[in-house]
Design a protein around this nucleic acid. Structure first.
Ligand SMILES: NC(=O)c1ccc[n+]([C@@H]2O[C@H](COP(=O)([O-])OP(=O)(O)OC[C@H]3O[C@@H](n4cnc5c(N)ncnc54)[C@H](O)[C@@H]3O)[C@@H](O)[C@H]2O)c1
Ligand SMILES: NC(=O)c1ccc[n+]([C@@H]2O[C@H](COP(=O)([O-])OP(=O)(O)OC[C@H]3O[C@@H](n4cnc5c(N)ncnc54)[C@H](O)[C@@H]3O)[C@@H](O)[C@H]2O)c1
Lengths: 242, 242
DNA sequence: TTCGCATTGTGATTTGTTTCACATGGAATG
DNA sequence: CATTCCATGTGAAACAAATCACAATGCGAA
């Protein structure tokens, strides 16, 4: 039972969602196959990931849905109130706040920070907006451990420094600035411009190889394995190889 | 000069951004070291990535900034107009449309699709909003090859099917539904809820190990390598090992 | 009760990616 | 002109992650 990797943590949340659905349907047991299909990975991958939980299913029955849900929750979700803050109430900042509000039982966005005085002291989706200048104080007072960065690129490092100095240990960064943070602070970068570039790139490639390989407008056959769960190599799968 | 991997494409866009900055500063040459520092990767990684471009720098001078910029553009960016569409003009859909508009020379969001009749036929950020029912027709007519999915989870597969049937070959998917698409269609999933869970997880872990390892409120030292460029293992780096 | 079978858990293997390490070579210096 | 320095390009090694393959297991049918 060794430590879970970055990717395993991500997949566990996918299994969790699938299991919740199964539970809602009244299923009490599930095989690795089924979870694999729902999360678009292999069955072996599912079993490996579940190993880190220390929970075992039984052959012939598979995994007990309720128990597995509980194990994943105990492993990846906070067991007691954990707080987050968002800096930058612009386009994505607002969308994220709205989206994340009330989504996880023990994970709450309890503060937002702005540089624009227009927005100070207002309640946005039930969450108080403070001046970025008081961020250190608020973060410490409320015990916030997670920070979401939705400020302009040029401000990102500055706000990250404020966050880290105040005790934040995990940052979800939407700015396209690679952040410098002390060892031990976890940063996950989400670079949407890059993602779009990449999708456009592989879309072009797909068009190119299609034209090169197929005689005419051959219809694409529905071979489920085509997609590319974020974080993997593109489906360079040869198409309809018949 | 073998094919570029998913991750190489992503990093190339980072080098590109760094190079543009250098160019703006008047630099005409750059070493792999420098690019590595700016993109938070190793110098060897930079050289490896650049290999796929077929461009060579010179020892003692490094890479010619202008030429390298051009090579990256020629390799990863569209050489002629490429079009994209967004489905779902809700929270993120709107933020994305605004953000992506006019950002890349040859990549344009030229249409958006909605199910809500309130939004039909309006111009949003200069982009026409159509009924999802006419998506097939519009996509074919305009030659759109990239689709962005910002619709509710339950609608994602349906819209993806419409997209694919109309000829879209790359999808940026914000819904948390794993999509089934034919082989050859590239899908990049962005699961923000998962990312937040993960950041929260590693933030908790960081707090835990800190408490376990450090005697008291030892200050974190600014060791630049601490962060975690998305897509990698968390900085399980031992902290201040003195 | 026994057998057959489908499924789990995991060692071994493969696959893919990053890093190392060094031969190569251009530029500057004396 | 020779020598020194440093950075590049790349084969080889190291590493990480996913997959394979199979022994172990327990259920249900006979
Ligand atoms: N909107 C998108 O879809 C999108 C997509 C990809 C990346 N991004 C990135 O996200 C970041 C924000 O994007 P946006 O579109 O929401 O921008 P935006 O301009 O709409 O919002 C930025 C907000 O941050 C506030 N702000 C500025 N400096 C601040 C500071 N020091 N402290 C606190 N708040 C501060 C501004 O007042 C503004 O409200 C940018 O780095 C951008 O590159 C946005
Ligand atoms: N908002 C966020 O920050 C955020 C974060 C993570 C994930 N997501 C995901 O993104 C998706 C959309 O989120 P949102 O917050 O923008 O939701 P939203 O409800 O604000 O927007 C969805 C939009 O899609 C439209 N729509 C519904 N069915 C459609 C169809 N068949 N064709 C075209 N348009 C249709 C709706 O009219 C609505 O305008 C969801 O899957 C959500 O899980 C959103």
């Amino acid at each position: 039972m060794n430590r879970a990797s970055y990717r395993t943590i991500g997949r566990l949340t996918h299994y969790w969602r699938a299991l919740r659905d199964l539970e809602a349907e009244g299923q009490t047991y599930a095989y690795s196959h089924l979870l694999a299909a729902k999360a678009q990975v292999t069955a072996a991958q599912v079993r490996r990931d579940i190993m880190v939980l220390g929970y075992s299913g039984t052959p012939a029955r598979g995994y007990e849905v309720r128990r597995l849900v509980e194990c994943i929750e105990a492993y990846v979700f906070p067991s007691s109130e954990q707080r987050a803050a968002i800096a930058g109430m612009g386009n994505i900042g607002l969308a994220l706040l709205k989206f994340f509000t009330g989504r996880r039982p023990n994970l709450h966005v309890t503060a937002s920070f702005e540089a624009d005085p227009e927005k100070f002291d207002r309640l946005i989706y039930g969450c108080r907006c403070y001046s970025i200048d008081s961020a250190g104080e608020v973060i410490r007072r409320e015990g916030i451990s997670v920070g979401i960065l939705a400020v302009p690129d040029a401000e990102a490092q500055y706000v990250a420094d404020v966050f880290v100095a105040a005790g934040i240990r995990g940052i979800l960064n939407f700015a396209r600035t690679p952040l410098e943070v002390p060892a031990g602070v976890y940063v996950e970068n989400i670079d949407l411009a890059m993602s779009l570039d990449r999708v456009a790139f592989f879309a072009r490639q797909s068009l190119k190889t299609e034209r090169a390989v197929l005689p005419a407008g051959t219809p694409l056959d529905k071979a489920s394995a085509g997609g590319t769960p974020s974080d993997e190599a593109p489906s360079a799968n040869k198409e309809s190889e018949s």
